[in-house]
Structure formats: structure tokens, C-alpha cells
């Protein structure tokens, strides 16, 4: 089932690539239309799974990854519609494809636990997923910032110079995404700790540790941008680093360790 949105994301990636290369309005409209179709198909699948399980399907690594991809797609579409800026799509879609490949290729073992119900658990998982989606956007924006920065700095004005918005705008978008992500990360972590204490679960878990490292990195980034002038390129580096840690938490730790799967 998860193959349908994956295939559509792949087609959308090609369309965004085409738009990035040719910059014609029809190409842009086509790309957006395909991505909207992909997001709708994805919405439908998550909706079906929710009805089937009686709860939002975030209880396993694969379904959480699918939810993450969906949130990212929706968040990206929102920024695209509000800013009319499509050049970022070609950078976001590989991430969407990678994230969606996990549930498409491998499904979660059937776990039906009464522990994984209740609003606190829902708050924990959805806040964190939303935070991670924001960080993913920040990371992609940060990477494009670095690419554009490099072109201007080295005076080789080329592909990115003609296609990306200004450094100032990219920096602002990055900061905004980090603030939103940080707020939800904090909420998600607090909810997770309260939930774990209530359910008498152990807090000695690599996933929790890495999440705290993430929180520290992003907190530092927010502080550094405001207090010591680490905006622009350094903020972009930090966004990429922070998101690398997020991904680390998502894929290897979920599959290779005995950590909790959600």
C-alpha cells in the first residue's frame, strides 16, 4: 500500500527536477500537482491505517517514518503555496522518497499494546514527528543556503544563483523552521518523559539520549543565532548536523538497538 505514495513521490521528484532545470511555469504546476496527488494518496493510506487500528499509526518505526514523510510533504507543500517558491522541491523530495521507502519495503510487526494508547502517547509521538519534519525542512533550507553561499562567495554564479531565493530569505526560513521544530521537540520530550514515568518504563534508552542531544544542538543553534551571531552559514551547518542526528535516531537506532520503536 505504501508503494503508491512512494511511486508518486518519485514521479514528483522527476517533475521538480525538470522544473529546476527548465524553470517553465507548466513544469512547476505539473510538479506541484503530482506532489499534491502523492500527499493525498498518502493521507488516504494513513487514514485507512488509522481506521483499521483504531489509533494513529505511529506505534512502530516504519509507520512513524511514513507519518514523518507525510508531515514533511504537507509542511513543504504549505511553504510552497505560501511563498510560491518551488526550487526547494528538488531537495526535499529525495528525503521524502528515502523516508517513504522504509514503510514501503518493510512493515511493522503487529504490536497491539494498551500502553500505546492515550493522549499523552499521541502528543509525544506527533509532537516529535512534527518537530522532525520542521528540522528536515530546516536542513534542506540550510543545504541550499550553503550551496548558494558558496556560489556567491567563490564568484561562480550558476545554477543555484539563478534559481534560489536570497541568502537572507533562506536564513529567515531556516530560523523559523528551527524555532517551530524546537518548540515541538520540547513538548514531545516532556510528554515522553511524563508518559514513560506513568507507564513505569525505563528512561535509559539510546533514543532518548540522542533526542536530548538533538535538543541541545538546536537549543545552541537558537541561542547562537541570537547572541553570538551564528546566523547564516553556521546556522545552516548546525541545521544539517542536527538533522543528521535526528535521522540517526530514526533509522539505525530503531532497527539496530533495543530502543523503543516509536
Amino acid at each position: 500500500m505504501n508503494l503508491v505514495p512512494l511511486a508518486l513521490y518519485l514521479v514528483a521528484f522527476i517533475a521538480y527536477g525538470w522544473h529546476f532545470a527548465r524553470r517553465t511555469p507548466p513544469a512547476g504546476r505539473t510538479a506541484t500537482t503530482i506532489l499534491v496527488a502523492a500527499a493525498l494518496a498518502h493521507t488516504f493510506i494513513i487514514g485507512m491505517q488509522t481506521m483499521e487500528a483504531g489509533q494513529v499509526p505511529v506505534g512502530g518505526a516504519a509507520s512513524a517514518s511514513s507519518m514523518f514523510a507525510w508531515l514533511l510533504a504537507v509542511a513543504y507543500l504549505y511553504t510552497e503555496v505560501t511563498t510560491d517558491e518551488r526550487s526547494m522541491g528538488v531537495f526535499i523530495l529525495p528525503l521524502l522518497i528515502a523516508l517513504q521507502a522504509i514503510p514501503a519495503l518493510r512493515s511493522d510487526p503487529e504490536v497491539r499494546s494498551s500502553v500505546l494508547r492515550g493522549w499523552l502517547f499521541g502528543l509525544h509521538v506527533s509532537s516529535l514527528l512534527f518537530a522532525y519534519a520542521s528540522f528536515a525542512l530546516a536542513c534542506v533550507i540550510g543545504i541550499t543556503y550553503m550551496l548558494l553561499f558558496k556560489e556567491i562567495k567563490t564568484k561562480h554564479l550558476g545554477v543555484f544563483y539563478t534559481r534560489l531565493p536570497s541568502l537572507q530569505v533562506l536564513d529567515q526560513m531556516n530560523q523559523r523552521a528551527i524555532v517551530v521544530g524546537w518548540v515541538f521537540l520540547t513538548i514531545g520530550l516532556v510528554a515522553g518523559v511524563v508518559f514513560a514515568v506513568q507507564a513505569q518504563m525505563s528512561l535509559e534508552d539510546p533514543k532518548i539520549f540522542v533526542a536530548l542531544v538533538c535538543w541541545a544542538v538546536y537549543s545552541f543553534e537558537l541561542f547562537a543565532a541570537r547572541r553570538i551571531g551564528w546566523a547564516g552559514r553556521k546556522a545552516a551547518y548546525l541545521s544539517a548536523l542536527g538533522f543528521a542526528i535526528v535521522l540517526l535516531n530514526f533509522v539505525p537506532i530503531s532497527y539496530l538497538t533495543t530502543s523503543h520503536k516509536f
Binding site: 548558494l148 556567491i152 554564479l157 544563483y161 531565493p165 536570497s166 541568502l167 537572507q168 530569505v169
Partner: peptide, 9 residues
Amino acid sequence: ALARKIFGN
């Protein structure tokens, strides 16, 4: 054009 690419507005 360069100034705009750096500072936006």
C-alpha cells in the same frame, strides 16, 4: 542583482 541575492530586499 548580487546585493539582492545576498540581502533580499
